[in-house]
């Protein structure tokens, strides 16, 4: 009986969260087309999310590119006595999977958490209610600028991560594996097609939308003062990270299905 109660409660809780999320997204689209865009806020948030995450995203992709080159170089050296297709392995791994996923995780941890904390603090101090009494609403003033900021900043950061990661791979290839730069970059450019790049790039928009949804939702429904803000922030980051990996699989499978491999 206890287990059934527990399961029942979980199902109801999940349904409530999904219902509220749906209403939040519905309101977001309504106000996107029915209110004046807060351009200043969009710019401010885009810069904030981009700048907040840039350093960590750079380091993450740099070292990922470096370790990919190292591992693939030495593996092919052991198998074929020379490091083959290091640029191809680094380029494909980064562009299609690692740069979008790792950058999304960095953005969720760095910027997503700060958005949840900010909106959560506003929720527990009645600032969200104040928005209504001052003639606006959280969708127009808070959510739309943050959604747009994530949708702009994450793809740009991912592009940057791709470049930095490939450069990281190049540094290791030339120093540790003595691969000439022409060979390394030819390995990438010879096999890489636009659709390979698009495979990773398209996914960033799904990740951005999801991070914005989770971080804004967790912030808006924060309860219980400072402790509640802390809990919401942690939940937001954990949920975003899990969903990034889940969405990555499903979107990748869909893109493969429609021929964007």
């Amino acid at each position: 009986m206890y287990i059934i109660n527990k399961i029942g409660k979980s199902v109801i809780d999940i349904s409530i969260h999904l219902g509220r999320t749906f209403i939040m997204i519905k309101n977001l689209f309504f106000w996107l087309f029915n209110s004046k865009l807060e351009k200043k806020e969009v710019f401010k948030q885009t810069v904030r999310i981009g700048v907040d995450s840039l350093g960590v995203a750079t380091l993450t992709s740099l070292f990922t590119g470096m370790v990919l080159a190292l591992q693939s170089g030495y593996t092919s050296k052991n198998l074929f006595n020379e490091p083959l297709y290091v640029g191809t392995v680094v380029g494909f791994s980064l562009v299609k999977e690692l740069a979008p996923v790792l950058t999304a995780i960095v953005v969720a941890g760095r910027a997503g958490s700060s958005v949840t904390a900010e909106i959560g603090s506003m929720a527990v101090t009645e600032q969200i209610d104040a928005l209504y009494t001052l003639g606006t609403n959280p969708s127009t003033y808070l959510l739309i600028p943050r959604y747009l900021a994530f949708m702009i900043a994450l793809p740009v950061l991912t592009l940057f991560s791709n470049i930095v990661g490939i450069l990281g791979g190049y540094i290791v290839s030339s120093i540790k594996l003595s691969i000439p730069s022409t060979v390394y970059f030819d390995d990438i450019l010879q096999y890489m097609e636009v659709k390979n790049f698009m495979h990773g790039f398209i996914k960033t928009f799904f990740f951005a939308f999801m991070i914005a949804t989770v971080s804004c939702y967790k912030g808006l429904y924060t309860e219980g003062g400072a402790e509640g803000v802390g809990k919401s922030t942690t939940n937001s980051v954990v949920l975003s990270m899990v969903l990034i990996l889940a969405i990555d699989y499903f979107v990748s499978a869909f893109l493969v299905l429609i021929g964007i491999t």
Binding site: E118, Q127, L134, G135
Partner: peptide, 25 residues
Amino acid sequence: YLFQEGALFDSLNVWENVSFGLKYL
């Protein structure tokens, strides 16, 4: 509406807070 704790926006300064509603109302 005067809220219990004031509910001023921390990210804005005093005059931006006071004039916030003028834009919308």
